[in-house]
Simulated assay, not measured.
Amino acid sequence: MEVIWFVFFAALLAGYFALEGFDLGVGLLLPLLGRTRETRDRMVAAVAPYVLANEVWLVAVAGTLFGVYPLLEGEVLFGLYPLVVAMLLSWIVRDAGLWFRRRLDGSAWRGFWDAAIAFGSLGLSFGWGMALYAAATGFESPPVHPLGVLLGVVMTLLFALHGWTFLAWRTPGEFGGTRSGRALLGTGLVAAIPALGVLAGAMPYLLGHSAPPATLNVLSVMVLPFAPIMLGAQIWVWRTFRPGKDAFRFPSFF
């Protein structure tokens, strides 16, 4: 049962990096590619249908982490407390930008919230790199370390590449290129590699510090039946908003 939950947790974490990665990447590219208000509107509209569905994966990751590996809760929350707070604030700022940018019609208003989207995306991307470094060292090294900063830069660049590939797939030709679904899948896998590498190294520790078998059995009954529903909803979103089918039917609140 411990192995099954480890595989499930790894799949959730990889899914989050591969899916939320292009959301963050588009936010990172907003100041670079969005040189006009109309262009920024197109970039946000392209990613809008996927944001909420992608964020569900992070909720699932957090729930699985604290349910299956309860001993890590203290290490993650207390060992990385400042970083976790900074990432949560970045998440709030990014989502606030998505929700509020169209509440009023004005260049200053839109510009402020577009900057919030970019800043929040940068904080999350950079923060994930530093968090992965701390996890790779068993939380014995602080995330603000030259290697942690380097990994933060790497994750930011990987997410930016993934975001550009998404735009080139979602809106062919509008942002300097056209990419296929396979290319998008490829950059998604590349974005997830650092997280999977850390998990692979931590596998012996995680398997040895899983929750008791009785707890895992209860979680299996309560959680695993809902996994196909989450996956099915994700498939529905991608099929509904894929290029060439309702290509510009975007949620009005973004």
Rank of each mutant, 00 (worst) to 15 (best):
I4D: 05
L19E: 02
G21V: 02
L24H: 07
L28I: 13
L29C: 08
P31Y: 01
L32R: 14
G34S: 01
R37C: 00
R40Y: 00
R42D: 15
A45F: 02
Y50I: 04
V51G: 03
V56K: 01
V56L: 06
A60L: 14
V68L: 09
Y69Q: 05
L72H: 08
F78Q: 10
Y81M: 14
P82Y: 02
L83Y: 06
A86D: 06
S90A: 12
G97S: 10
L98F: 15
W99K: 15
F100H: 12
F112I: 11
A116F: 14
G120W: 08
G123V: 10
S125G: 13
A131I: 08
Y133Q: 01
A135M: 15
S141G: 11
P142Q: 00
P143R: 02
G148L: 03
V149S: 02
T156E: 05
L161K: 10
T171E: 13
P172L: 07
F175Y: 11
G177E: 12
T178C: 05
S180R: 08
A183W: 12
A183H: 10
L185K: 09
T187P: 03
L189P: 02
P194T: 06
A195C: 09
A200G: 15
P204D: 02
L206E: 06
H209L: 12
H209I: 14
S210G: 12
S210E: 07
P213R: 00
L216V: 10
V223S: 04
P225V: 00
A227T: 14
W236D: 08
F248G: 01
F248K: 04
F248H: 09
R249Y: 05
R249D: 05
P251W: 04
S252K: 12
S252G: 07
F253M: 07
